[in-house]
């Protein structure tokens, strides 16, 4: 009997955990989207006022952001140092970013759109592109937040309850 109870508890704990992880990743996605906007805002400042070179700006911004963004920036910079063009380095690092985080491919689209233009035109043009990407990211963030609010509780309940259902079936 005790064994059965223990098994049931472990099962509920496991499924519950899966549910909570899913819920957390929804929240994490919102946070990442806002951090990506922060990244672009930082680049805007560095390009507009400090006129910092892009690799330097990326290293700086990485240090002040979360680990995922830092990793992304470092990857771009190291690809640049290998002599890759920025467009390719940027796109590659973006796909790594969406692979290792909860960001979907659509979430990184606004940033992907920057690949062919980033660093290749004068200041005015750069700022225009960055602002546009920022706006698109903000829209995605709003959407992601709505989804998170709707689905977060759902995943938590789903996790625990599906565990209970399996226990009931098994018992």
């Amino acid at each position: 009997m005790i064994l059965k109870l223990l098994g049931a508890l472990i099962l509920i704990f496991a499924t519950g955990n899966i549910g909570f992880t899913m819920a957390r990743s929804l929240k994490r996605r919102v946070l990442l989207l806002s951090q990506l906007q922060g990244l672009l805002q930082f680049l805007v400042t560095e390009i507009d006022f400090a006129v910092t070179l892009l690799p330097e700006a990326l290293i700086k911004v990485g240090e002040s952001m979360g680990p995922e963004i830092d990793h992304f920036c470092q990857e771009v910079v190291s690809s640049l140092q290998l002599g890759l063009p920025l467009s390719i380095a940027w796109e590659r690092s973006l796909s790594t970013l969406s692979d290792i985080t909860s960001l979907s491919g659509d979430d990184t689209k606004p940033l992907k759109a920057l690949a062919p233009v980033l660093g290749l035109s004068d200041r005015k043009d750069q700022l225009r592109h960055l602002k546009l990407a920022q706006e698109h990211l903000r829209q995605r963030e709003v959407k992601a937040e709505q989804e998170a609010n709707q689905n977060q509780k759902l995943w938590c309940y789903l996790g625990v309850l599906s565990g209970l259902v399996i226990v009931l079936i098994l018992v």
Partner: peptide, 17 residues
């Protein structure tokens, strides 16, 4: 030529305006 330009400007044409 474009690749050389990117390397020379360090992908930061705006800084070399």
């Amino acid at each position: 030529m474009e690749q050389c330009m990117q390397l020379i400007t360090q992908s930061s044409v705006y800084a070399r305006e």
